[in-house]
Design a protein around this nucleic acid. Structure first.
Lengths: 225, 225
DNA sequence: TATTGAGTGAACGTTCTGTGAAAACTATAG
DNA sequence: CTATAGTTTTCACAGAACGTTCACTCAATA
């Protein structure tokens, strides 16, 4: 399968770059537009774009107006970026066929997960499930079973485990983990990861040592002892 | 099974588009007509249409007159779209074989559910019924029994329960629930869901904990403790 | 052995959920 | 049209679950 093309529309270049980074790393091809007009031009000249991520609050053509114009030419999937404080104009969104909302600030993991989900949905209707060495993760049900036994994970623990599993065999620094599982504007102590790892390990029982410590570096998930 | 073809008749293009969107996403093929005359033409030239959704209030031929003409050529299933204020001419509808009414505003869930129901009914004479772990839901009778004992649910409680049951095992955010169970133009507090969940849980008795809280996320229905 | 990093349990502050009651809204009957 | 009962929504508070930090201990490296 080839990489899907995604158009990111935001007036803040910092935000565009950020989203671009995350999506590029997730294997997508990313195009950027700094305002609504530019977005329309870009999309008009390249209808192979699979998904558009639209910031709501922009000078000139705002996200909604831009979307309205886009809808005149296509029903391409759209994700709206909103600030927490901004009211989500759900009615408008619904009518215009918004597929998802992402509230700033968001974690890269969530961004990528939503993008994946929307693209998957637009392709087919399939439920995402991982199964690694006896650990079964059902993302849609937000459920994890170890050797058939369901275990109870908190939100962050779940997010962290999913991140580990989706990056099996790769040594991940605390920095990297923080950047991907936590919000991009998180500035806390990276040792908080240790605490979550501890809890994860204990909740995973004997499968807990699939989470390997890479001394002086970080952690690595691998389904072996 | 191939997609059923549905003809949507409404003078407001926005409304047509909206209904089209919802139904397309649900996997139906949608045709549109902007007035009664056009509807008659479209239907006359394509009798493979499985269902017609008719707005009552239209300039020119109104919904009723249009339906009358349609009935001269076919007994195709029909759903009438009415505004809350408009009186539902039930007698007339009954005589003309109206299958369902949908009152504006409606939620996507209701639209798709009614369409599904009508088409299913028109295919076989089966009444829609769920039976999950002792909870029996008769959708057409709008009745719920728990371990054989009938319980009394309000409209919203019923809708919510049905939505949960039809999405078993999936963690549903409040956002998602609001979008699907409430009207598309609902702007309220998502905590209202908590209140309904509370009442549902208590009315379901010990089966109440089939509704699981997914902390930091939403709720999930699962017929286990 | 000295130094640096990791494991751990407890404590704290934060965020989210459960809940009852009040308010707003609807439908119904008089 | 008004009163009334029932339903839905909002609100505020209490309590639970969670995320984070900290101080300490233990382990790895050189």
């Amino acid at each position: 399968m080839d990489k899907s093309k995604i158009l990111v529309v935001d007036d803040e270049s910092r935000m565009r770059k950020l989203v671009n980074d995350f999506l590029s790393r997730a294997g997508y091809t990313v195009l950027e537009a700094g305002d609504g007009m530019q977005a329309l031009e870009v999309y008009a000249s390249d209808k192979s774009i699979a998904l558009i991520i639209l910031d709501v609050m922009m000078p000139g053509l705002n996200g909604w107006d831009t979307l309205e114009s886009i809808r005149e030419m296509s029903s391409v999937p759209v994700i709206m970026l909103t600030a927490r404080s901004e009211e989500q104009d759900e009615l408008r969104g619904f009518k215009l066929g918004v597929d998802e909302y992402i509230t700033k600030p968001f974690s890269p993991r969530i961004l990528v997960a939503r993008v994946d989900a929307v693209l998957r949905r637009s392709a087919s209707t399939q439920s995402e499930q991982h199964d690694i060495g006896g650990i079964v993760i059902d993302k849609s049900a937000h459920r994890v079973t170890v050797d058939g036994r369901e275990i109870d994970l908190s939100f962050k623990e779940f997010e962290l485990l999913v991140y580990f599993v989706e990056n099996q065999g790769i040594a991940l620094s605390r920095e990297t983990i923080l950047n991907n599982v936590w919000n991009y504007n998180y500035f806390g102590d990276s040792r908080t990861i240790d605490t979550h790892v501890k809890k994860l390990r204990s909740k995973l029982g004997e499968k807990g040592d699939y989470i390997h410590t890479v001394w002086g570096m970080g952690y690595k998930f691998e389904a072996v002892r």
